[in-house]
Design a binder for these strands. Sequence first.
RNA 1: GUGGCUGUAGCUCAGUUGGUUAGAGCGCCUGGUUGUGGUCCAGGAGGCCGGGGGUUCGAGACCCCUCAGCCACCCCA
Length: 414
Amino acid sequence: MSDLQPPRGTHDLLPEDQRRHRHITETVLRIAGLYGYEEISTPIFEATDVFRRTLGETSDIVTKEMYVFEDKKGRSLALRPEGTAGVARAFVSHLRSKPLPLKLFYQGPMFRYERMQKGRQRQFHQFGIELLGVPEPLGDVEVITMAAHILEALGVADKVTLEINTLGDPDTRQAYRDILVAFLKGHRDGLSKDSQDRLDRNPLRIFDSKDAGDQEILKDAPKLTGHLTPASQDFFDTVKGGLLAAGVNYTLNPGLVRGLDYYCHTAFEFTTETLGAQGAVLAGGRYDGLIEAMGGPSTPGTGWAAGVERLALMIAEPPGPARPVAVVPIGEAAEAEALSLVQRLRQAGFPVDLGFAGNLKKRLDKANKANAVAAVILGQDELEKQAATVRDMETGEQTEIKLSALEDHLARYR
RNA sequence: GUGGCUGUAGCUCAGUUGGUUAGAGCGCCUGGUUGUGGUCCAGGAGGCCGGGGGUUCGAGACCCCUCAGCCACCCCA
């Protein structure tokens, strides 16, 4: 048994799990359509450089969480750890001549080599959207509004909070970063070990630290909001005003940051208390420098990604499959008749379960386990009358119905 | 990568300070009903106690290693 387990951090999606996943992705696809987004599928693996360039050489994802391997020609490939890089690459490869804006939706498995926790595994599923070619704050508003719409449609709106922040334009960001580093270097010894590392690699992320000592030091740190250029401030104000107008509630979180250089302006996250430490359910922001970093034409972008497994843990049980009608033949002659009857009913649109073997008792038992609404019993008596006994599986009530009138009678179970 | 907790039947779990042939409920199968499911009754199958090594007269219980799961950190969806 132990040697037949799936690899660490991977899971079989059994039919009832898959049902939840499908309910989520179908809901997303439907709502994305309302906003004019079309699905794009990119490969599950890419040249390792695709992720190196978009995620940064020093990011944790690249240095310790990527599944990297060589193919038979010695090319370095990586299983995708997230979706944006592949979409950006596809844009640069094929889509740069399309009229902008481009509204793309994607969905599928992602891979990260990590220790598991609730709502986190090594193969997991994300869906996300990218809006390319819109430098205006209205793009951010639409993207966030759509996310809120989706979460509402999934019935989790009351379990999540939207937090937003701004990183300012690239110049502000860079200038502020220098100011912050200068300040924190004066307090280096007081910082936690993790944050001392972050100071070199990714100083803005120190704001996320859960360490109490770090937060104490940060209280006196210079704030980004105090360093925004008027244009950046305007941008952020327009985003906030737009969300207000669209009826999307949010809270400001000045500690919400993104480390990579191409992120700018809006950063946001829908978080929940219901998933333990894995609070982020859907997160995104603006990445105006990304396409350029990939070697494409300078193209603004904004978007987000969400975790399907995390959402699956939050949503209510989706409706199960439609209840079938069970056709139950008794004897060989009836079985032959049943084969044609079954096809007739399926062509008419009824889900039909035809047991493979067994006497009446066994087949009714199977029909019950298949959650059948009704059983159409076909025995010698019925055959002679060109009729069937239809048993309501809920009440046990039985009625004899002419074969020619079956569809009409069964219509009540649709 | 770091730390803590946990692995007994398909599932949820019991199993006394180490002591004979390892248990329950649910589920599954068979029968009570040669043409009637769910309820009920009777019976049955199914475990190298995650794997390997060690201590012991004796290990499901104790020790070490390993694999897997859970929780937290890191990071992130």
